[in-house]
Write a protein that binds this DNA or RNA. Structure first.
Lengths: 320, 320
DNA sequence: CCTATTTATGTAACCGCTTACATTTTCTAT
DNA sequence: ATAGAAAATGTAAGCGGTTACATAAATAGG
């Protein structure tokens, strides 16, 4: 069933049907009525595919995440969906698993399916092959990056200052009198390196010039944290700063198990923090605000307005 | 840029270009070469929108979840994405928040955008307004339900026997000598009622006819579990069976805080179980298998094969 | 009452692709 | 060399909408 059927049923032309559907152009109340009746009678639903072909807008956006099972990405995706739903857009969820090839393939697919825009959440440190690709890509379809490497041209950025977040946490711990901070980096994203840098900077500023030596690199997840803890506590350490709540949970488990007198802190302020014993202090990286901003930026671009090239959001500590 | 540009560049007709792109029909190696050169030179990428208009397939599927932040839905979405990616499909993620209206709106949007199929994860208990809607809907576009109310016609079902899962857990606890089991229902989905029923059944079968009186209904999340625990332990209770790991985490927190001699069990076997102290025994509801099966079923339908109307997957206990 | 505007409607071209069908070219067998 | 079959190619008609433009109807002004 198509617009011709409706036109026939209503006894008008397809142009008139199109006009009443889109509430665009002039149409007499008489034929308006006839068309509406026909629409109802036939229970007609227009093909957005065909529509998109001529209006050049699908009202679909792509969202690239690294791992949707990670509460951080899930929370971002959640908010993005909500915000775009309000605005009449649908969301294509593209989970890359961190693979640059998959990322590129997805970006291509989104272009071919004429997504109106894309939001990329999290990126590798920069210089990845996707970065070059994006330079051209972003000229064809608007891209906003959440917590991504920010030297790419024509891409908009919404960034939570994760580096500052870790700095704040370190400063807090030092103020508490902790002497031997250790950092666990569990990822190799842009954001992960920022955090690491925050740790090094904070320590340096407080008279510990070689913070770099107090860093452990692991994989992601609770077990990784647990395993890391085994090594960390072989040397003196009274505070473990983690780049992720999950990692912190693993360290905490170890600490509890062996009654080690050290404190652990997390990052992301996920629901996990409340669930653990003792509750976990964490850096709130403002997932909701970040996602909202990203949607606002993209929506502005899609509406023909200009949007901030770079939006910086400040994290805050949640001490428990 | 379109297929005409490529045709002109290659000096052939658009039909020939189309043939080489889709590797369909006969084309001489000579013009094959010319077209491929043109494709490369122009860096052409066909519009899948236009293509879909005539071939009637978008290679896009919709996935409806209730809350993507919930690790259960996230895990399902994760696997669905992976499996469909392999098969060349993209995924529209539609998070309904449990609203039947939003569910219907999303289903309509998917139909208008000509999604090839949809997977719905989790449903209300049945009789919701979306159920009626689905009866008609499923005749137009294939629907497979994961853990959904299963009396709807023309809809395929992949169901983990959550009821049996809770039964197994209860039987285990009873065998351990527990005398006062209590159940916490934290949701009002189809699956949640199944679990509840499993609890009642198991108790009845072991000589506790009024298990219904030992059930607390709460909202979702760690805090809800914690609050529920306050009431539960006002009367004798040595085992709390939860319908969700998160709820269990809340109860566990309470138990630890007040050193209550009771055991808690969860459901979903999420990473949380390992993170908690003591580790949480949980029902593994086979998220991966369920999601894989759903994709297989939908893929079969889309490939014109016949698929199982109903797939039942058996949960298992993970005791820690 | 007639002309000038405004408002309403319809026709046809276009969006960018696929594909049935017609036509031309190439190949095979006589 | 030639008829017939097979292979290659092109033309044009969709797919289901939107919209520029032309035309017709309604309204306004003199």
């Amino acid at each position: 069933m198509n617009i011709y059927d409706v036109a026939r049923e209503a006894g008008v032309s397809i142009a008139t049907v199109s006009r009443v559907i889109n509430e665009k152009g002039n149409v007499s109340s008489k034929s308006m009525q006839k068309v509406n009746d026909a629409l109802k009678k036939l229970n007609y639903s227009p093909s957005l595919l065909a529509r998109a072909l001529t209006v050049k807008s699908t009202h679909t956006v792509g969202v690239l995440t690294i791992d949707i099972r990670d509460p951080y990405y899930a929370a971002i995706a959640y908010t993005i969906e909500q915000e775009f739903y309000k605005r009449g857009y649908n969301m294509m969820l593209c989970n890359t698993g961190g693979s640059e090839e998959k990322k590129i393939e997805y970006l291509n697919a989104l272009a071919q399916k004429q997504a109106d825009g894309v939001i990329i959440v999290g990126s590798s440190f920069g210089g990845g092959r996707a970065d070059d690709f994006l330079k051209e890509y972003a000229q064809k379809i608007p891209v906003v990056y959440i917590n991504g490497y920010s030297e790419i041209k024509d891409v908009h950025f919404v960034i939570c200052d994760d580096r500052r977040g870790i700095e704040l946490m370190c400063e807090h711990l030092l103020k508490q009198g902790k002497k031997h901070l250790h950092y666990i980096q569990d990822d190799i994203t842009f954001s992960a390196y920022q955090k690491r840098q925050g740790f090094v900077d904070a320590l340096k500023r407080h008279g510990f010039p070689d913070g770099n030596k107090s860093i452990t690199e692991t994989g992601a997840g609770v077990n990784a944290g647990y395993e890391a803890a085994k090594k960390i506590f072989q040397t003196p350490c009274d505070a473990v700063v983690c780049g992720e709540d999950l990692t912190a949970a693993g360290v905490l488990k170890y600490i509890n198990e062996f009654s080690i007198p050290a404190v652990v802190t997390g990052f992301n302020n996920s629901y996990l923090c409340e669930a653990l014993m003792p509750p976990l202090s964490s850096v709130d990286n403002r997932v909701g605000e970040v996602a909202c901003s990203a949607v606002e930026v993209l929506d502005a671009i899609l509406s023909g307005k200009t949007a901030a090239e770079k939006t910086l959001i400040t994290p805050r500590l949640v001490l428990r």
